[in-house]
Amino acid sequence: MSMTKSETLSAETIVDFLAEIFERRGGEEYLGEPVTMAEHMLQGAHFAEQAGEPEIIIVATLLHDIGHFTSEFGTFSMDDVEDRHHEEAGAQVLEPFFPTLVTDCVRYHVAAKRYLCAARPEYLGKLSEASIHSLNLQGGPMNDGEVLAFELNQNCPAIIRVRTYDDAGKEAGLTTQPFSYYAPMVQRIVDAHCSGMAGQGRSA
C-alpha cells in the first residue's frame, strides 16, 4: 500500500490499513537502532501509556513514524545523504481521519528534535548515532527564527511530549502490547474526529 491508497480509505478501514502496515513491514530495521520499526512505535506508545497520557497522545506516539512506510521516497538508512520527509508523508495519510493534534505530532516530531537541540543543548548529547545522522539531513538544530515559529504552534507541548516517547522507544528486548491492543483506542480517536467533522458539515 502506498500514499495513493489513502484516497480510498475511510474511517471504517483506516485502522485495518494501519494494522496491516504494522504486520507487513513492522519487522524492518529502525534507522540503525537495536529495535524494529514496529517495536519502536509500540515502545513509544507503551511509555506514553505508562506515563498516564490521554489516548490522543498515546495514539499520536504510536503513529508518529508511520510515514517511514508511506513515504514515496522509501525508508531511511544510515547511508542516506538527503532527507526522505517521512514526517510529512505520514501526516498526509492520517489527516483525513485524525485531529490536528495527532497529525501535528506526526508532522512536527522531526521539528521537535531540531527544536530541542536548539532550546536544550544537553538534549543533543543524548541522541543516538542514527538520530544525529538523520538530524544532520533534516537541517540540524533550529535557528532562532525557527525556534520562535515552532513555539507558536498551539500543539507545541504535545509535540514535544510525543518526541520524548519517540526518543525512549529504542530498548532492545522490551516486551510491549501489539498493535491490536491499541487498535480500539485508535478507532475511538478516528470516530470522534470524523463524527465531529460530519457534525460541522451538517451545521454549515
Rank of each mutant, 00 (worst) to 15 (best):
M1A: 15
T4M: 13
D16W: 08
L18Y: 01
L18A: 07
I21T: 11
E23N: 08
R24E: 14
G27C: 12
G32Q: 02
G32R: 00
E33N: 13
E33R: 09
P34F: 01
M37D: 10
M37W: 15
M37P: 03
E39A: 06
E39M: 02
Q43I: 06
G44S: 08
H46Q: 09
H46R: 09
G52T: 04
E53R: 13
P54E: 12
I57A: 06
L62P: 04
D65K: 05
G67P: 01
H68R: 09
F73Y: 11
G74C: 08
T75I: 11
S77Y: 09
S77I: 05
S77E: 11
S77H: 11
D79N: 10
D83W: 12
H85C: 13
H86V: 05
H86F: 06
E87Q: 07
E87N: 04
Q92G: 09
E95T: 07
E95W: 05
E95F: 10
P99Q: 04
L101M: 10
L101I: 03
D104N: 15
C105H: 00
V110D: 00
A112L: 04
K113A: 09
K113T: 10
R114Y: 05
Y115N: 00
A118Q: 04
A118T: 03
A119T: 01
E122Y: 07
K126R: 12
K126S: 15
S128V: 03
H133V: 00
L137R: 03
L137C: 03
G139S: 03
M142N: 02
E151L: 03
N153E: 12
A158P: 01
I160K: 07
I160A: 09
V162Y: 05
V162C: 13
T164E: 15
D167N: 09
G169Q: 05
E171Q: 15
E171I: 15
A172V: 07
G173S: 05
T175G: 08
P178S: 09
P178T: 10
S180Q: 15
Y181E: 11
Y182Q: 02
A183F: 03
P184R: 07
V190M: 11
D191R: 13
G199E: 14
G201K: 11
R202N: 06
R202Y: 10
S203M: 12
A204Y: 15
A204W: 15
